[in-house]
Amino acid sequence: MSSYHRPPSVAEALRLKRELPGSSFIAGGTDLLVQMKDRVRQPTALISIRHLSELTRIETDGGARLGAATPLSDLADDSALMTGWPILGEALRDFASVQIRGSATIGGNLCNGSPAADAAPALIVLGARVRIAGLDGERLLPVEQLFEAPGRTRVREEELLVSIELDPPLPSGHGVFLKKMRTAMDVSLASIASLALLRDGRLEEIRLAAGSVAPVPMRLHETEKVLRDRPLTPERIAEARRVARDEVRPITDIRAGADYRRHIVGVFVQRALEATLEKGDR
């Protein structure tokens, strides 16, 4: 690494990125610096973006716009955000440690491209979009389509993820986030997010997404199909558990076996739906 830059604006940051081939943006640095230490990534230059106020704002006015360089702890401390989209709070609550949450940013968690990114399943079920800026302008992409492969997203080399945008919360939607770790400080070995709208015992809307059980955070479309527009019954939940187990594509690694991960996804889908059922039509 030969130089460190602190550009005054997003536009300047993008220009630097084009000028400095092999450079990398840095925000919280909680992943990048570890990878640099281990020489997994060796950027030629670092371009800091965490000081840019346009990237660290949280705006809530019906919907929400989260600056990509906002630390996770700032999101968790924002009461309007936590009240409107509580599932996001659940996903961030047990995220790593207090120190990491103080530094790691929401955009960084997504751009790292980890299949285990805890924020991803929650943002996917919320229907969140990311705003991506390039020198030629901006584009919007659903979070669901952001991930390409482990460690790879659709944010191109000369682009910068600038914000995450949320639609107004579903009226009476019920969100649940569950994750499984080995100890309290761990990369999750399976996680799921569920957002359900139960009316008169029927699931009017259901969105399910899972982390750490496929090459990228994934939406559980097959499982949703079993549930959508149907009465939510214990039998239906048992079926959803089976379908979810088959729908995910986990691998075996040192944290857990593939079969165990499938099993946990099934259990979590069941638990999330049971929680929705218990909460009822309110």
Binding site: R182, T183, A184, M185, D186, V187, I254, R255
Partner: peptide, 27 residues
């Protein structure tokens, strides 16, 4: 409940506290 050095053909696969779990204050 948690700890084990995992090896594959004599090579250690989890040489760090991300992959080798000791209990935290929570546990």
């Amino acid at each position: 409940l948690y700890e084990q050095v995992i090896t594959e053909k004599g090579r250690i696969l989890n040489p760090n506290f991300t992959d080798y779990k000791i209990p935290t204050a929570v546990e």
